[in-house]
Nucleic acid binder design. Structure first.
Lengths: 153, 153
DNA sequence: CATTCAATGTTGGTCATGCCAACATAGCGA
DNA sequence: TCGCTATGTTGGCATGACCAACATTGAATG
């Protein structure tokens, strides 16, 4: 039998079973779905905005540096994303009375509403993303990834 | 007990068990390790170059469009990455005698050597990346991700 | 055979995520 | 008081991924 000549749906064997390769493919798919969903229903918001709104809704007002640490987003990117959220009136920035430079960021009612809409999008994407797996397999995958990431490194 | 005030090592509960979130965190870690490894030992090459060299070494000479389909890299990015590989004499581009526009890309001996060096890097990164998991867990993770990605979507 | 269509390589953009450096300023600790 | 750290901001870079347009070529269709 001659070698197969199909161009696509094949992966060099060097990559095939590599965890880093699989994770990068999974991420490409996941972020594609997420961007499509955010683009369609998110009013131009992206992952950074969702993370920040989620942190504010869950833990209440915080300084920008605090938000950065909570969400794993760089301080400079926090600044930019908050400026966009502020221009849409989804958050408010007020000066911290006890600290000259610090600003306290608060989510607005509209921000909470928007967050709920984004939650819907994210939920839908989970289903699409995990569609090939059974519920038990989905749980196992989540557990393994959680263990992989929880361990300090 | 007052609420905890630690800034870091926490994740909004909305994100915590989400597969897309975990995958994005895993990818951030994995690509960080990979970039560090490639930067240290890869002679300025990146993931695209590795994928292309791997495909050429495994399946032999191919046209650029073929390479793009094999590796999942866009035609335009293939062009750019091949130009860089060519300038390092890791690949060669020759005109296809049977086809005017098409170019046949071949990996050179130096390219094969470089690929072997990159293999070492990638192998080392797998170990770092998967360190928190037992061998059995690593296998399960790879199996689950493979199943997740194999299914046509 | 002629015309259309698809494939090819290339150029030149865009976007999102993640970093890093530098800076001015503010607060804190030694 | 002096020096260190934290803070918000600006501006930049790298990587991966994608897209549009173009000229050219081969192949398919009428």
């Amino acid at each position: 039998m001659p070698p197969r000549h199909r161009d696509t749906d094949r992966v060099p064997s060097r990559l095939e079973g590599r965890a880093t390769w699989l994770v990068s493919r999974a991420y490409a798919r996941s972020s594609g779905l997420l961007n499509a969903g955010f683009g369609a229903a998110g009013g131009g918001l992206r992952g950074y905005h969702y993370r920040l709104l989620a942190a504010l809704a869950e833990w209440g007002p915080a300084s920008q540096a605090q938000l950065g640490r909570q969400t794993g987003i760089d301080r400079s990117d926090v600044t930019a994303a908050l400026t966009e959220l502020e221009s849409r009136d989804l958050i408010e920035r007020t000066a911290d009375p006890d600290h000259g430079r610090r600003k306290i960021v608060t989510i607005t009612a509209a921000g909470v509403d928007q967050l709920h809409r984004l939650d819907q999008v994210v939920d839908g994407v989970q289903d699409d993303f995990l569609a090939p797996l059974t519920p038990a397999e989905r749980d196992r995958l989540v557990t393994l990834l959680t263990r992989l990431l929880d361990t300090p490194h």
